[in-house]
Design a protein around this nucleic acid. Sequence first.
DNA 1: GTGTGACTCCTAGTCCGTC
DNA 2: TGACGGACTAGGAGTCACA
Lengths: 83, 83
Amino acid sequence: MDIRDRIGWNLRRLRKERNFTQEEFATDSGFDRGYISGIERGVRNPSILVLARIAKALDVDVIELLDPVKAQQFAKSARGQPY
Amino acid sequence: MDIRDRIGWNLRRLRKERNFTQEEFATDSGFDRGYISGIERGVRNPSILVLARIAKALDVDVIELLDPVKAQQFAKSARGQPY
DNA sequence: GTGTGACTCCTAGTCCGTC
DNA sequence: TGACGGACTAGGAGTCACA
């Protein structure tokens, strides 16, 4: 699994756990909604400082965003689901 | 501890464990030696794909580069030491 | 609510060198 | 052996309109 996908799935997972829309989270974290969308889909290549800001907005450590197991599980559970 | 310092100390720790010079590691991983130096010193802001390439060259998972405990310990043990 | 393409601006990352 | 500088090019940061 590509590292960008790991981050993308984990971000989507953590955001949904908090019942935020992309738009709400974008406002909260100070990013553009389209940029957040791109990270969740794994098409962006964010820098480590961007990840740190995102992690802070989610109130987790950066490592949580890179968790391969949780990313995999969430990706699997999300198959065929609407966004 | 800044996220860039965590990465810097962990990179230096893992590189030294393998008895590589910055130059050797730069050649191995395909990066510029000055760039590797900058990451170790925490003055650079690498993207996640860069970290993935570095992790691969070290044969560890990216998470290892972000380990806060090991970074702290190594930073402490390295106080006053020459590079 | 979200995906997506196109865009500008600025920094990441390279290559050379010196200390 | 590693820190640090300047000049350069590739690519990330950040925004928007439209689907």
